[in-house]
């Protein structure tokens, strides 16, 4: 089973230009990252393109991983998720841009890591549950489905500015609870 340390080592070696490590990293993480692309884009061909872009970027940016402070899967998932969302927005004719990346924890963790991940999950769930349910759903929708402010406003049937205010206040409350 691939551990968090394994993935971290692979990324560090990829940062040094190690192609064998890159191949191993792909084999170990592409299924999860393809899952990210599929969920957000909901289209196989586009998801494959997004996954390709993600790994090209991983190859190019792995040398910055060591100093960016992320856990390995968080970095990979954030990078992939952001690229997939950019593709989604481009398809919808919205604004697009690309850049930084980071996010999650899931790999094949050690029991200890799994326990930590589980407690982080329950903490996040607990804090989301303290928000009004529609606001919590908005945060989840933004993360999991890649919804933009426009889409969130339409889905929750509120004006755009109201949605912005909601979400920002929700984020501040959420952070307060998480910290």
């Amino acid at each position: 089973m691939t551990t968090r340390e394994d993935v971290e080592n692979m990324i560090l070696r990829v940062g040094l230009g190690d192609r064998a490590a890159f191949s191993a990293l792909y084999d170990a993480t592409s299924a999860k990252l393809f899952g990210v692309c599929l969920r957000i884009l909901n289209d196989r061909a586009e998801a494959e393109d997004a996954l390709q872009d993600a790994f090209v970027r991983i190859w190019q940016k792995a040398d910055s991983y060591a100093v960016n402070g992320y856990s390995p899967m968080t970095w990979l998932i954030t990078l992939t998720r952001n690229l997939a969302i950019d593709k989604l927005r481009a398809r919808k004719g919205g604004n697009v841009d690309i850049d930084e990346v980071h996010d999650l924890k899931d790999t094949g963790p050690t029991p200890e890591a799994a326990a930590v991940a589980a407690s982080e999950k329950s903490r996040l769930d607990g804090c989301l549950n303290e928000l009004p349910s529609d606001r919590a759903d908005a945060v989840r929708g933004a993360y999991i489905e890649g919804y933009s402010y426009d889409e969130l406003a339409a889905r929750f049937d509120v004006p755009l500015n109201t949605m912005r205010t909601w979400l920002r206040r929700s984020l501040i409350k959420l952070k307060d609870c998480l910290s």
Binding site: V36, D103, L104, K105, D106, E120, K121, I144
Partner: peptide, 15 residues
């Protein structure tokens, strides 16, 4: 990003 990371459990791996 680390604190939101548990939400990524919703991304089901697919080869």
């Amino acid at each position: 990003n680390e604190q939101l990371a548990p939400l990524a459990d919703n991304f089901t791996p697919q080869t």
